[in-house]
């Protein structure tokens, strides 16, 4: 389904993930039928027809690759770690770990940090690395992917989608946030018991007489936590990426606007370094705070 390359198709192309799922065919405009095969979606229309049981291969690939990279780095430091004079690499890892440890100790009061601190480290570094992909010029990886796809599988380069920033795919932040929700529920029940947890949902803030009202209010509060977490990260990164894409479209508009675009890209990239770090940090701190709240008894 090769479209003509316009600014809008370029932007749309950048916003489409590489989806793998049940293949669909458009028999007439607006009417899709499944073909029964599994494969990559060749258009955004087909991708949206694939439903829940499809997977964004680019998001999974990039996030797992970055996660493995992060774990490889920390593991290689942990293997050779010494209490004596640290190597530069160990120094760097210690810098991050000490920072996380201080932050977690500052906002978590629910006892030992043997789970929460590694969780915070993973969130911070992983989210940061995923966000960092936003600083790679927007066309580099999609172009590489398109040419690889057309070279290896013979597909039209325009039909190969590749988004390298996992956090601009709502599934990635939402998946993490839902995990955080599960952890909140798990720790609430573990600390306060099943009765304590549901009591907290039902008997406050207005006492037992207002039970249904309390329940609705508290469930919304509970669910708002992970959703705000996911939306904040996704929104910031999605907007940031959008601006990068828009700036990138300026390159096709002549030398003057193109050079202005280059200037803008540098400026936005520098500003974006702050955003990606801040968003990773916020995701981490809020997770720790939520888990801290789950560890505390409310009466």
């Amino acid at each position: 389904m090769a479209e003509e390359l316009t600014v809008s198709s370029h932007i749309k192309h950048h916003l489409q993930n590489l989806a793998f799922g049940r293949k669909h065919e458009e028999i007439e405009p607006g009417v899709w039928v499944p073909t029964g095969d599994w494969g990559f979606a060749l258009s955004s229309g087909e991708a949206s027809q694939m439903g829940f049981w499809s997977i964004h291969v680019d998001t999974m690939f990039m996030s797992i690759m970055l996660g493995v990279l992060m774990m490889w780095f920390f593991r290689s430091v942990a293997k050779k770690v010494s209490a004596g004079v640290p190597t530069p690499m160990q120094n760097f890892a210690e810098l991050i770990i000490e920072f996380i440890d201080t932050t977690v100790r500052g906002s978590f009061s629910g006892g030992k940090t043997t789970f929460v601190a590694p969780l915070a480290l993973t969130i911070f570094v992983w989210v940061f690395l995923m966000n960092l992909m936003d600083l790679v010029p927007v066309d580099v990886f999609p172009q590489i992917a398109a040419h690889t796809g057309s070279f290896l599988f013979g597909v039209d380069p325009h039909d190969v989608y590749f988004k390298i920033v996992p956090t601009t795919d709502i599934n990635a932040p939402l998946g993490m946030a839902l995990t955080v929700l599960l952890l909140i529920i798990f720790f609430s029940i573990k600390i306060k018991g099943l009765g304590g947890f549901f009591g907290e949902l039902a008997f406050q803030p207005f006492g037992k007489k207002m039970l249904p009202f309390n329940f609705v209010l508290e469930v919304v509060t509970l669910l708002a936590k992970p959703f705000s977490l996911a939306m904040r990260l996704f929104g910031n990164l999605y907007a940031g990426e959008m601006i990068f894409i828009l700036i990138a479209t300026m390159y096709s508009a002549g030398l003057v606007i193109g050079s202005l675009g280059a200037l803008l890209q540098v400026g936005w990239a520098i500003f974006h370094i702050l955003i990606i770090t801040l968003q990773a940090f916020i995701f981490m701190v809020l997770t720790v705070v939520y888990l801290d709240m789950a560890h505390q008894e409310h009466h």
Binding site: S54, M60, N171, G175, M176, L178
Partner: peptide, 12 residues
């Protein structure tokens, strides 16, 4: 689209 990537991400 919200899809199974969600679950994959959570597991990862």
């Amino acid at each position: 689209n919200i899809n199974a990537t969600l679950i994959g991400q959570a597991i990862a």
